[in-house]
Design a protein around this nucleic acid. Structure first.
Length: 241
DNA sequence: GCGACAG
DNA sequence: ATCTTGTCGC
């Protein structure tokens, strides 16, 4: 299969300080205009961790944009090389996600990330970072905010409230289902915030989270459970009664 | 200085 | 993220 083409030189073995500086440079290259092809295939990405957070399973699920049916799934099993640090999330999750994405038959037209894009202190959340590396349209859709909106959105589906950073709107809290707590949406790359919101609503017809995230999540979780009981070298039973 | 802090 | 026991409701 063809090697995944990265549009930027990348080194993952960085100190937190160096990673922060790299974020500031990459953030300047993010495109916030709609530079989308016809969207036929939408990807969801997610990672499940082992008990000690060292072993991980990265998964990518491709959905048909019209039917939301799963077309393809790929995964990569590896080890985390960067700790979880709020604000540096992409340096932990991108390396294994790229390994999984390499296995796809065809690249998607849009990627929805479980995390933020522009709604990030340096405007380079996971979604924006991934979009820059692959030069593909991406959306950030997180379950909890890194930057919080000043007020809560209204109670109806599609109600929203802005998320600000330095007097500029970088995202929204978006109600995808009535009376259900919102998700936090921001543009990743090559997409406007408005279009990103439209897609998240379209991808969330029945549940709080978009189908891309739900499918990716259940995929890596079931892989994790299979990996839990399958490759058990010796199942120790240290149960005392 | 203190709190807050995607997954 | 993962762990963890029960509980309320469709």
């Amino acid at each position: 299969m063809p090697q995944l083409q990265l549009h930027h030189p990348h080194v993952w073995d960085l100190s937190p300080e160096a990673a922060t500086i790299l974020q500031m440079a990459l953030a300047k290259q993010v495109c916030l205009n709609d530079a989308l092809p016809e969207i036929k295939r939408v990807a969801g990405v997610d990672i499940a961790y082992g008990k000690n957070s060292e072993e991980l399973i990265a998964g990518v699920v491709i959905l048909d944009a019209d039917s939301l049916q799963v077309l393809e799934k790929v995964h990569f099993i590896g080890t985390s090389v960067f700790p979880y640090v709020p604000g540096l999330f992409s340096f932990r999750e991108l390396p294994p996600l790229l390994k999984a994405l390499e296995k796809l038959q065809f690249l998607p037209d849009l990627i929805v990330c479980d995390g933020h894009g522009q709604a990030h202190p340096r405007r380079l959340g996971l979604a924006s970072h991934l979009g820059i590396l692959l030069d593909l349209p991406t959306i950030g859709c997180g379950k909890t905010p890194l930057l919080k909106p000043l007020v809560e959105p209204g109670p109806e589906r599609a109600d929203q409230s802005p998320i600000w950073l330095e007097s500029e709107q970088v995202g929204v809290a978006l109600r995808t289902q009535p009376q259900i707590r919102p998700v936090y949406v921001s543009a990743g790359h090559r997409i406007s915030l408005k279009t990103a919101i439209d897609w998240i609503l379209r991808l969330s017809p029945d549940y709080r989270q978009p189908e891309t995230t739900r499918q990716a999540n259940s995929y890596v979780n079931q892989l994790r459970e299979a990996h839990h009981s399958g490759p058990d070298k010796e199942t120790e039973v240290t149960q005392t009664i």
